[in-house]
Amino acid sequence: MPEGRLDRYPGYDVLRKRDTPSWNDVTRRVIDARLAISDRPRFLSETDWATLQAICERVVPQPPDRPAIPVAALVDDKLCRDDGDGYRNAKLPRLREAWQRGLRAIDAEARVAHGTGFVALDGDAQDALLRAAKQGDLRHPAWEGMPSDVFFDARLLRDIVHAYYSHPTAWSEIGFGGPASPRGYVRMDFDRRDRWEAVEAKGGDEAEVRRRNQRVG
């Protein structure tokens, strides 16, 4: 899948900073708990879960050469905790209801258009269906009046992307410094990194950068 993806921060693992002054106790507790979330549903039904997993693979595709971030499980965990945003567009039902309805509607749209569930579609067909949702073009009765575009932006994209980028693996991928307390940062200027920050590869220097990133801590 994501072949030729540029790894700008080879060898950088934000978790290597776990036992440095960059992490405080509460952060360690919280991140440990997140890493312990297993890749199976606790809130969603098996069918909805399968659809969600397939959607996650389209929205935040992952490389095969590292342990995958359990994105669907992180979204399911949010639903399990019913951890809402504190507001919702009037056109949407509440968090859990919106997700259940949206997943079923997307699956129903797939069955109408292709005669098979969303999970069984190939990637391009899945993308096309998601794009139609984004455009607000999907009107299957299973949406029960919920506009597909509002669901797509306010719930689907937001929650999936949020889940992916709340995982340390994603932080390492983008060279984010990760948790920082009590230790923050010193070097603030252009092109500066503290020695507890990721080294960026500029092309052709990956081996050396990898070695340096393994010392970051």
Binding site: I31, D83, S166, A180
Partner: peptide
């Protein structure tokens, strides 16, 4: 915590409706 998800606890997350 230094964590965006955990710190959601600081916000008013009781339901409100926006239109």
């Amino acid at each position: 915590a230094s964590d965006e998800v955990e710190q959601n606890k600081l916000y008013w997350t009781d339901e409100r409706i926006c239109d």
